[in-house]
């Protein structure tokens, strides 16, 4: 549901897509709110299919899709507010970086001067102005990735769809690009991306959609998704000086299923079936005079979710 006044969601209603007899995605129902959303799943799980469906590059066999109230079958309106950097590593042979971005802007009705000005700005955002006048065909993989991103953002879209956008980027540009996504998300826009770099997804995403075999396995904020997985105990790392004593106290709690002592005997890995009870138990331990330096959730990250839900098949 979309709150009054908020930007409408990207919505998939019972969407299925088959490539002949091969399943693309099956009965997908999603409501993606504004912010950064990561599609996570192994190769062939259906991430790119979802992205292609929401941008109209392919059409669903069943179901309906709406991107902030617009149909992907209406590119004239949809693509004014949507930018998509695909994974297809190709560009017209004749084009320089500047031509590549500016030419696409001509179709938005911008004048030549305005197109070039916007293209330059977009290239600046991806730190590619130095190579603006070189042929895209001669770019490195990372540069081609950036020029596609520049093309996707050049018209200042409200929905940014990015297929593996951080692939091939050096650390500095990667950080700048993530900042750009955050900047977009902060403005109430949609940034929907796919990635295999789980740590990055973990850090940058407001919400994740875990997908496997064409079906949505989980969706939502990472922590909420984690909370819903009652069959897998939550893991916490406790840094403390009196590790063995604390371990014996926690073992008395019925919700604690396993405790592992760290080699330096200054830390514990505790597995619990009830996070609330665990929190109360820790308070009791602290009140009893044991010093706890810190408690860190060990599996509220996409790696862990991935492992639990999909079996680590990335």
């Amino acid at each position: 549901m979309t709150a009054p006044g908020a930007a409408p969601d990207v919505v998939f209603e019972n969407v299925s897509k088959f490539y002949g007899e091969v399943l693309g995605v099956n009965k997908v129902t999603l409501h993606i709110p504004a912010g950064i959303t990561s599609l996570v799943g192994p190769n062939g799980s259906g991430k790119t299919t979802l992205m292609n469906l929401m941008t109209g590059l392919i059409h669903p066999d069943r179901g309906a899709i709406s991107v902030r109230g617009l149909s992907p079958r209406d590119p004239e309106n949809l693509m004014r507010s949507t930018g998509y950097a695909t994974q297809f590593d190709s560009a017209p042979r004749w084009a320089t970086g500047m031509d590549f971005v500016a030419t696409s802007l001509a179709l938005y009705g911008y004048s030549r001067a305005e197109s070039r000005e916007r293209a330059w700005k977009a290239l600046e955002q991806v730190s590619l102005t130095d190579a603006a006048d070189r042929k895209v065909a001669g770019y490195s993989k990372g540069m081609r990735q950036r020029v596609r991103l520049a093309q996707a953002i050049a018209h200042d879209p409200q929905v940014l769809v990015l297929d593996e956008p951080l692939n091939g980027l050096d650390p500095l540009v990667r950080a700048e690009t993530i900042d750009l996504f955050r900047h977009y998300a902060a403005q109430g826009r949609h940034v929907i991306l796919s990635s295999h770099v789980l740590q990055e997804v973990d850090v940058i995403s407001d919400q994740v959609i875990l997908i496997a075999n064409g079906m949505i396995v989980a969706e939502g904020e990472i922590r909420n998704v984690r909370d819903e997985m009652v069959e897998h105990p939550s893991q916490f790392i406790i840094r403390c000086r009196d590790a063995s004593r604390i371990a014996s106290l926690l073992f008395n709690e019925s919700h604690v299923t396993e405790i592992r002592m760290n080699d330096d005997r200054l830390g514990l890995l505790v597995m619990t079936r009830n996070r609330e009870e665990f929190s109360r138990a820790l308070t009791r331990v602290a009140v009893a005079g044991h010093v706890i330096d810190g408690v860190i959730p060990a599996d509220e990250n996409v790696d862990a979710l991935y492992e639990y839900l999909i079996g680590g098949r990335s």
Binding site: P75, T86, F88, S90, P92, S104, L107, H155
Partner: peptide, 17 residues
């Protein structure tokens, strides 16, 4: 064959145009 058709399909233009 060049894998560049999607750039056109991602432009804000009707397919007939």
């Amino acid at each position: 064959l060049d894998k560049t058709l999607h750039y056109w399909f991602l432009a804000p233009a009707r397919r007939e145009v």
